[in-house]
Simulated assay, not measured.
Amino acid sequence: MGIDLHFTKGQGTGNDFVLFTDADGEIDLTPTQIASLCDRHFGIGADGLIRAVKSTMIAEGARSLDEDAAAEWFMDYHNADGSPAEMCGNGIRVYAKYLLENGLAELEQGDTLVIGTRSGVVDVQRNLTGFQADLGRWRLDGGEPLVRAKNLQVARPGLGINVGNPHVVVALADEAELETADLTFIPHVEPEPVEGANVEFVVPLEPLVRNGVGHIRMRVHERGSGETLSCGTGAVAAALAIRYWAGAGAPNQWRVEVPGGAVGVRMYATEDGEHVALSGPAELVFQGDVTLD
Results as ranks from 00 to 15, higher is better:
residue 1 M to V: 15
residue 3 I to Y: 09
residue 7 F to L: 05
residue 21 T to H: 12
residue 24 D to C: 07
residue 25 G to H: 02
residue 27 I to A: 01
residue 38 C to P: 05
residue 39 D to W: 05
residue 39 D to T: 10
residue 39 D to H: 12
residue 43 G to K: 04
residue 44 I to N: 06
residue 45 G to D: 04
residue 56 T to R: 13
residue 56 T to F: 09
residue 57 M to S: 13
residue 59 A to M: 07
residue 66 D to H: 10
residue 68 D to K: 00
residue 68 D to M: 00
residue 68 D to L: 05
residue 73 W to F: 08
residue 74 F to M: 04
residue 74 F to V: 01
residue 76 D to W: 08
residue 77 Y to S: 03
residue 86 E to D: 15
residue 86 E to S: 11
residue 90 N to Q: 07
residue 92 I to C: 01
residue 95 Y to G: 03
residue 98 Y to L: 09
residue 100 L to Y: 01
residue 104 L to Q: 04
residue 106 E to Y: 04
residue 108 E to T: 15
residue 111 D to S: 15
residue 112 T to D: 10
residue 112 T to Y: 02
residue 116 G to V: 06
residue 118 R to K: 15
residue 128 L to N: 14
residue 129 T to I: 05
residue 131 F to T: 03
residue 133 A to F: 04
residue 134 D to T: 02
residue 137 R to L: 13
residue 139 R to T: 15
residue 140 L to P: 02
residue 142 G to W: 05
residue 147 V to M: 01
residue 148 R to H: 15
residue 150 K to H: 12
residue 151 N to Q: 13
residue 154 V to I: 13
residue 159 L to G: 01
residue 163 V to R: 04
residue 166 P to A: 05
residue 167 H to P: 06
residue 167 H to Y: 09
residue 168 V to M: 07
residue 169 V to T: 11
residue 169 V to G: 00
residue 174 D to R: 01
residue 177 E to V: 02
residue 186 I to N: 14
residue 190 E to C: 12
residue 195 E to A: 15
residue 198 N to S: 08
residue 201 F to Q: 10
residue 202 V to F: 04
residue 223 R to V: 10
residue 224 G to H: 12
residue 227 E to C: 02
residue 227 E to L: 00
residue 229 L to R: 12
residue 229 L to I: 03
residue 234 G to I: 03
residue 237 A to P: 08
residue 238 A to G: 06
residue 239 A to T: 06
residue 240 L to K: 06
residue 243 R to S: 14
residue 252 N to T: 11
residue 252 N to S: 11
residue 257 E to M: 14
residue 258 V to M: 12
residue 265 V to N: 08
residue 266 R to H: 15
residue 269 A to K: 10
residue 270 T to G: 04
residue 270 T to Y: 00
residue 270 T to H: 00
residue 274 E to S: 08
residue 276 V to A: 04
residue 280 G to Y: 10
residue 282 A to N: 02
residue 286 F to D: 11
residue 286 F to E: 11
residue 288 G to D: 09
